[in-house]
Design a binder for these strands. Structure first.
Lengths: 210, 210
DNA sequence: TTTTTATCGATAATTTAATATCGATATTCC
DNA sequence: GGAATATCGATATTAAATTATCGATAAAAA
């Protein structure tokens, strides 16, 4: 369980529900059942009900949930109404891709700028600026940034992490393929591409060579 | 458990062990203990031993594991010696970033080319080519591609998925924020950025507003 | 040589997550 | 109005994953 009486796994599924609910067209019926959601997302209906019970105001027998209310409840719970400011460190390809990707704002993430050690990449990327590292701390404090996104090579990641912590971050989203260490009150979320790849290639090996 | 007597979670941790083991410097002792690994990666030592027991040839009391042998065992198990060919569909920012990212080859993934529906993006990205969609199927069959990476917008993802399945893919790595449906023998691995973000923002909300 | 210690591997206990079952209820159909 | 049905929510069960315990053992120390 996390602090809110919602399990980690449930929390991971909430965005799935949200995106499914939002994808329902305007002229769909304005209610939706746990069975329907489960079927669309490949989940177990009981699991869906349990997840929803912990964040939404409740469904009704024979009717299910009112789609609009359900969306509002999930969004309210996840705090998508509040925008969290974030910065990217590492303006390589991945960093730049994130910097100009609009989609994060749908999830309450407002990426303000990127920082990099390499002078040559300074400037604009789309609407947003790429700044030198020595401005990071002051920028984050001035703009009240609490989320740092790390897209530097593995060898530089821990150093960047330390700097981000020192600059006041409370959560760090790490795309470098290393495990970072940080004080316990900081959440370090490792986006583990290699782990996913392991599952993929294992599946492939099982398919092809057995 | 997966087909190989190794749990899904274990499989996800193996790349972590591998990258840690490889990060040990040349002049480090040539053995390593489960305790040491666990400490470095923030895991439980029993868990580490259990994971390793299922893929490696075994450690010795008081000594631990021989680092070099352990690396070999894990790599052998994960099949990193074999390169799997892959293509990207969607040559937007994320797609291009992947296309020119060298790091995937370390994990046995060989990205050959990208495909896109937009004529204007055709051409080269670094060493690799961006080709029109109508060449996808023929290319995949000719080059024996078995992994498809989807980096198109959500609305196009299912259509692309169907096309990839039809082109002979056995595993699909999906970065679009939708749940894809595919025949049961195809592995669809959803890289769920929104899920990770949910954890981040939840942590932040808990920190800031409680 | 004997004792101590770090370590593994096996088994047991615990925790967490997923699924099944079932009674209650609101709507629809007869 | 009464029966049938789809649905929820609660509770119970099962499964999976993690963590704890403990005996065995090989190296190091005494």
């Amino acid at each position: 369980m996390t602090g809110h009486g919602v399990s980690r796994q449930t929390l991971r599924r909430l965005p799935l529900y949200l995106s499914y609910l939002k994808s329902l067209s305007e002229d769909a019926p304005d209610n939706v059942s746990s069975t329907g959601i489960a079927e669309a997302l490949g989940l177990n209906p009981v699991q869906v009900r349990k997840d929803l019970a912990s964040v939404a105001s409740g469904g009704r027998p024979r009717i299910g949930y009112i789609t609009r209310e359900l969306i509002e409840d999930i969004e309210a719970f996840m705090g998508y109404s509040v925008m969290d400011n974030a910065v990217i460190v590492g303006a390589g390809r991945l960093g730049k891709a994130f910097l100009s990707y609009e989609g994060f704002t749908n999830y309450g993430l407002n990426i303000l700028a990127a920082f990099d050690a390499d002078e040559r990449v300074m400037g604009m990327e789309g609407e947003k600026r790429i700044l030198p590292m020595d401005q990071l701390k002051e920028f984050c404090q001035r703009m009240d940034v609490r989320i740092g996104i790390i897209t530097v090579p593995a060898c530089a990641a821990q150093q960047v992490c330390d700097l981000l912590v020192d600059s006041g971050m409370l959560a760090i989203w790490n795309f470098a393929p290393v495990r970072l260490t940080a004080p316990s009150h900081i959440l370090v979320q490792n986006e583990n591409m290699a782990s996913s790849l392991a599952l993929l290639s294992q599946h492939l090996a099982a398919r092809l060579y057995k």
